[in-house]
Design a protein around this nucleic acid. Structure first.
Lengths: 204, 204
DNA sequence: CTCTCATTCCTAGCGTTGCTAGCAAAGGGG
DNA sequence: CCCCTTTGCTAGCAACGCTAGGAATGAGAG
C-alpha cells in the first residue's frame, strides 16, 4: 500500500531536493550579502563557504563555479531592478516624467547596490542577454525601459533600438561615475540632459 | 677639468636613467602587446617578466604593481584615441558629420582594441580622471568630445556636461556590446540614433 | 536490529596569482 | 686593487579557484 508520504509527495527524495534548494538559496543570499557589504573581491570561495558554514566543495555541487554564483545573484538583482523601475514608471504622471523617473531609478540602483549592479552588467558572467533564453527577470527589466521609451520613439525608429541606446547611456553614466571617471555632483544635471535629448516627443 | 661627458650631460647617471627609461618603455610595450594579443588575464607578472627577459621583481622597481602598469598602458591608449578622434573630427564636413565621425571612431576604437579600452575605461586603475591632475592625453581625448559637442549644445546647457553625457552613452554602447549584452549587428543603427538625439542643433 | 551500499560532505592539495624578503653579482669611485 | 653601492636574481609567502579521494552519514534489505 502506498504510504501517506508517497501520496502527499513528501518522500525522502523530495525532502532532499527541498534541502538542496534551501542550501542553494543560502549560498546565493550569502554571496549577495557579502558582495554588497564588502565587494566582490571579498567573495572568495573560502570566505563564502565559511559564511554558509559548509566546506568549499559544497559550492561546486550547486554551481559550476564562482561565475555561476555571481550569475545567480545577478538574476536576483535584475528582478529587483525591474520592480523598482516598474514602480517608478507607473507612478510617473506623464511620458517625460516616466522617462526621467526610470532613468533616476536606474542610476540610483547602480549607486545604492554597486555589487549587485556589477554582477548584472559589468562583470563577465555567462548569462544569455540578447536572446530569448535570457532570464525572465532580465527581460522584464528591459521591458520597463522599452515601455518608457516607446512613446518618445520617432516613427522611423525602432523602440527596441531606442531602449537599448537609452540603456547604454544610463549604463555609461552609472559605471563611469562609480569608477570615479565622472564627477558625482553633476550627476543630476547630466541625467536631466540625457532625458531632454531622448524626450523630444514628450507630452509634458 | 670637467670631462666631455660632464659637459654634454652624458654622465654615468644619465646613462643609467636612460636605460631605466628604456626598460620602462619595454615593460609598458610588452604589457600592451600581450594584453592586446591575449587579453589582460594573460598579462601575469611572471609572463610579463619572461616577455621582457627579466625577473619579476624588476617590474616592481619600475611600477608600484600590476595596476600601475595597466595605468601606463591606459595613458598610451588615451593618446591614440585622442589622435584618432581629432583626425575624424577635422576630416568631417560639418557639425553633425563630426559628431557622427567621432562617435564611430570611439566605438570602433573600443572594438578594435578591447584590451586597451578596458585598461582605459573599465578596469579599476588608479588614474586621476575628472581633476586637473589627469594625464594630458586623457584631457586631450576628452577635449575632442568637447569640441564636437559644443556646437550642438543648447544655450542653457553646459558643453562639459553634454560631452560627459555623450561620452557615457558611447561608453555604454561599447561595453555592453563587447560583453555580449547588446547584439552587434544593430550597432550602426544605435549609433545613428544616438547621434540624432544629440545633434538637434546640427547645421547639416 | 544489523548489514550493505549509495550518497553526502570534508580534508588535503594542486596549480596559479600578485607581491616581497634577502642574498649574490656587477661595476663605478677612492 | 679594494670597498661599497646599486642592480637584479632566487626563493618564498599568502591567497586564489577548483578538484581528487576518502570518511561519515543514513536509507533500504534481510
Amino acid at each position: 500500500m502506498a504510504s501517506v508520504a508517497r501520496i502527499t509527495g513528501m518522500t525522502i527524495q523530495t525532502r532532499r531536493e527541498r534541502e538542496r534548494a534551501e542550501r542553494r538559496r543560502l549560498i546565493v543570499t550569502a554571496a549577495r550579502e557579502l558582495a554588497e557589504a564588502e565587494g566582490w573581491d571579498a567573495v572568495t570561495t573560502r570566505r563564502l563557504a565559511a559564511e554558509i558554514e559548509y566546506s568549499q566543495p559544497v559550492l561546486y555541487s550547486h554551481f559550476k563555479g564562482k561565475g555561476a554564483i555571481m550569475a545567480a545573484v545577478a538574476v536576483e538583482g535584475c528582478a529587483e531592478l525591474a520592480v523598482e523601475m516598474r514602480r517608478a514608471r507607473e507612478a510617473a504622471p506623464g511620458t517625460r516624467a516616466a522617462l526621467a523617473a526610470v532613468a533616476e531609478t536606474y542610476t540610483s540602483f547602480a549607486r545604492r547596490r554597486p555589487a549587485l549592479y556589477d554582477a548584472m552588467f559589468t562583470h563577465l558572467v555567462d548569462l544569455p542577454f540578447a536572446t530569448p533564453e535570457a532570464p525572465a527577470a532580465l527581460q522584464e527589466a528591459f521591458g520597463q525601459l522599452l515601455a518608457v521609451v516607446t512613446p518618445v520613439t520617432a516613427p522611423e525608429e525602432e523602440p527596441g533600438l531606442v531602449a537599448e541606446t537609452f540603456w547604454a547611456a544610463l549604463h555609461g553614466l552609472a559605471t563611469l561615475m562609480r569608477s570615479g571617471r565622472l564627477p558625482e555632483p553633476a550627476h543630476a544635471r547630466r541625467l536631466r540632459l540625457l532625458v531632454d535629448r531622448f524626450a523630444k516627443a514628450g507630452d509634458e
